[in-house]
Computed example of a mutant assay.
Amino acid sequence: MVRIDSSLLPNFDFEREALTRGFARVAGIDEAGRGPWAGPVVAAAVILDPDDLPDGLNDSKKLTHARRAELHDIILAKAEVGIGIVDVAVIDRDNILQATYAAMIQAVAALASAPLFALVDGNRAPKLACPVETVIEGDGKCLSIAAASIIAKVTRDRMMVDLDQQYPGYGFAKHKGYGTAEHQEALARLGPTTHHRRSFEPIRVLFETATASL
């Protein structure tokens, strides 16, 4: 059996420190979908119960599809969860960073009660009503952020699977909108959909080429 060094897994230290400072409700926040060429950006905010922490949480990218799905359901059962979804129109209008902030703000607003402190993956964060601490590579260090990464990724992946049913031929269920060779070939063959991000360079060029040919 392969054993994983527990020191390399996310822990509850960031949350525990905030709790000892008197912040009774600590949310971890992360997003999925900043880089793809198509689909929404999704964020999640998760407040874990310190007395009932789920086992096996980790950066969603380090988990199998089946394990992510299993942990997604466990998190929903054990924690408070808020989800924010921002579509392509907003991404193209405001840019992906601002759209990501908007999704995070939506996710926090969707919690049953407002957090008193927030831990956000990365080195930048949106303005929230509570104090915020950013954690670089937080999904691999902080338990609440890891939980948020799982919720955000599973939610977005399922949305892309649904899009695959609506737009067959693009491979959305496989690559989830990322710029793979398969995706690039499909775009060259079929052209972009309304769910492709026109503000992203590869898609912008395709739209301009299609418009110029009319």
Rank of each mutant, 00 (worst) to 15 (best):
R21A: 08
R34A: 05
H72D: 14
F207M: 12
R34S: 04
L163N: 10
R3K: 10
S199D: 07
L116V: 04
A181V: 13
G122L: 00
L53D: 02
K141Y: 01
M1A: 07
T64Q: 02
G191C: 02
D59C: 12
E182K: 11
G191R: 06
V88F: 08
P50M: 01
K174S: 13
S213F: 00
A188G: 14
I203V: 15
Y101V: 09
K141D: 00
L71V: 02
A212G: 00
R189V: 05
K127L: 08
E15R: 04
A125S: 10
G56K: 05
R158E: 15
V88M: 03
G84I: 14
I74T: 15
P131Q: 02
H196E: 10
T180C: 04
Y170A: 04
N95E: 04
L214Q: 12
K78M: 11
D13Q: 10
R189A: 07
K153T: 13
A27L: 08
H183S: 11
V135A: 14
D30P: 05
E201L: 12
E15G: 12
M160G: 11
S149Y: 09
I96S: 00
T155P: 12
R198W: 00
M1L: 02
T194I: 13
P54W: 14
L163G: 12
P10N: 09
A18L: 12
